[in-house]
Design a protein around this nucleic acid. Sequence first.
DNA 1: TATGAATGAGTGTTCATTCAT
DNA 2: AATGAATGAACACTCATTCAT
Lengths: 217, 217, 217, 217
Amino acid sequence: MTSKNAKPKPARDAAATRKRILKAAKREFAMKGLAGARVDEIADRAEINKRMLYVYFGNKEDLFLAVLEEAYADIRNAEQELKLGHLEPVEALTALIRFTWFYYLKHPEFLRLVNSENLHRARHLKRSARIKEMHSPFVKMIGDLLKRGVATGVFRRGIDPNQLYISIAALGYYYLTNRFTLSVIYGRNLGAAPALDDRRMAIEDMVLRTVLKSPDI
Amino acid sequence: MTSKNAKPKPARDAAATRKRILKAAKREFAMKGLAGARVDEIADRAEINKRMLYVYFGNKEDLFLAVLEEAYADIRNAEQELKLGHLEPVEALTALIRFTWFYYLKHPEFLRLVNSENLHRARHLKRSARIKEMHSPFVKMIGDLLKRGVATGVFRRGIDPNQLYISIAALGYYYLTNRFTLSVIYGRNLGAAPALDDRRMAIEDMVLRTVLKSPDI
Amino acid sequence: MTSKNAKPKPARDAAATRKRILKAAKREFAMKGLAGARVDEIADRAEINKRMLYVYFGNKEDLFLAVLEEAYADIRNAEQELKLGHLEPVEALTALIRFTWFYYLKHPEFLRLVNSENLHRARHLKRSARIKEMHSPFVKMIGDLLKRGVATGVFRRGIDPNQLYISIAALGYYYLTNRFTLSVIYGRNLGAAPALDDRRMAIEDMVLRTVLKSPDI
Amino acid sequence: MTSKNAKPKPARDAAATRKRILKAAKREFAMKGLAGARVDEIADRAEINKRMLYVYFGNKEDLFLAVLEEAYADIRNAEQELKLGHLEPVEALTALIRFTWFYYLKHPEFLRLVNSENLHRARHLKRSARIKEMHSPFVKMIGDLLKRGVATGVFRRGIDPNQLYISIAALGYYYLTNRFTLSVIYGRNLGAAPALDDRRMAIEDMVLRTVLKSPDI
DNA sequence: TATGAATGAGTGTTCATTCAT
DNA sequence: AATGAATGAACACTCATTCAT
């Protein structure tokens, strides 16, 4: 008997086909950007007829948006799983910094996709309703975390939660995306394991010094 | 007589032709990236025959490298002009942070070019001799600045100058390049003047808190 | 119980399904021609599965022929209803001219379908048995009309009934199908109501002058 | 020596290339209409690289307009050569009727192109400045001809010159473009030489009867 | 040094038709 | 009888680069 669960290519299973297209598209868009990505390549990798891609997603740009939405959903979901609300403020902040670093490190495709979208001035994301609703609990979470820290006396007052998260993201994102030119400039491989570890510690140090009332680190 | 100073298009002036090509190419590469840039568009804007572009620069990728080298030279030269060595350490550091922010803000093409190059894993820059030699005084300058601050007792010990500069760059670069998706996520225009000012202050605050011995800000 | 009279989509009613397909196809073929018509669009409009279209009509070209046959049947039936045999020759001829003009005016899809078929050199119609049999009474009718007029002394002798009908059709068809380019050439909108009326009168005048023994118009 | 006049493909001669493209395009558009025409086929027939087609004409639709403009220019130029102003009114009118018929007969591509353009509601022609200016002397010529005939007492008063020319065109155009379906309906080949001659005479008769004061034909 | 003409491989997208259920 | 999934060939248009003068 031919099993429906055969991994490579379950015939006539719309949901599975959709998923295969999304997966292949994420890979291709991350590797080559929106313009550089090849629809043919996506179709080949997804083992579908190119036509299906248009049936399921409309066109290349809409497919890109779908990929982007999924990528944002993935990181926000993973963040939720940290249950930062159940941790002490300092622990929670440290956990968030580390999570962000390691998520960026392990998901370079997320960085590339976000990068691509910004090169297009968020043209696609602006049209997305999902994105906005997906981020309101996230924004609230950071705000709550800071408030709790201030309340327990460990965090300074007056820190803008948005600026803080942007900084946490920035310190990791920039290093990881720009480590290639930086490696040329500094004449050493900033992508090597020890260098990566150094960077992570530098980030933790910088953020905590900024937030903690008395950073006796 | 044909004047060398005739602005629009001095015939048969190799240096001027080269400059016009570089200027047009910088614009085009910054706007559309390496793959998206059009050789025809560059030639049209530079008011030269497309063939000349190949005579002067070999091919599209070599032209991209030339543009990139010039862009790096420009920012490093502007940095040199700050004469940070003549300022007190704290003033010098503040000046560097501000310079970096405003340079990024006023030269989005620099950010785009660096971004493009990193998408290609610094493939072009690696082949460049100019880049490396151009950065050694820059790296030294940051190191000297930190040492002076430590010596005068205003900066903490043990700060890695490379990490520090990367952080200064990161905090501005990430915000400016990613402000489009961030604006969608936060539901407000992070590119507006007040938001830009808020960000600059947040960056200064964060860096100084990290470096200063007792940040009584 | 499922009613046969349910308007929107009576399930499993072969005759009704066939009609819905034909109606949607007529619209689509008239609007976009044979090549331009989209099978998907026809299926969507007919609210049927695309596959059914092939079950009922074989393929796109056979469907086109079915549409065409129906369109010819419609105009010939409407003509029969004029009962020209019951009118005086002059009245009958005038009625035929007016009918032809207004039918063309109110059924642009008929003109478009005939036009499409001629672009294909009547490839489909040639295979149709229905068309030939459907036209023999029509041809006879025009002939009889002329004979009666000659017999009663109002029409000239020697008029070829086929040429006459072709002229009647031509004078209206050409104006209506080509009014777009003609409007550009003459610099005014030949599709406006007054222009349409002018044209109708010019046609009646021309045909009657050609047929009547002494056209004291 | 290699001659520049070598017919098949004079290399690097822009004007000749342009002409070859136009010629091939006219053929292809006439045969298959705007949508049905294949850019590849045009390029192959013109023995050019497809890219040149876009360099010279922008895109398929602009090429279509260029073809259309040329086709109109050709017939209007040929009409001018009749020097109708130098003939007696009746002779001139007869010459115009015959010319129109034979031009349509010998240039089926003109009929097809005009037909295509009307299927698109003269979308392209509306954008053309050339067309309008090219037709004002033509419109004037027909008007003058009628006036002269009225002045010399051979033509009736009150004939609208535009309606008259439209009728002359209609009587030939409709027959020639629709002779395929008409042949099926009448059961004989209306494209055969004797049938064509019959039609031409019927047209001349009809037009003259309409215009002449006392048509003693 | 400089030019305008030319190329060929490749892009995203579309479509009538058939398959599997 | 009816459906949703799938196909493969084609289409208009683009691009970096080279040729001929």
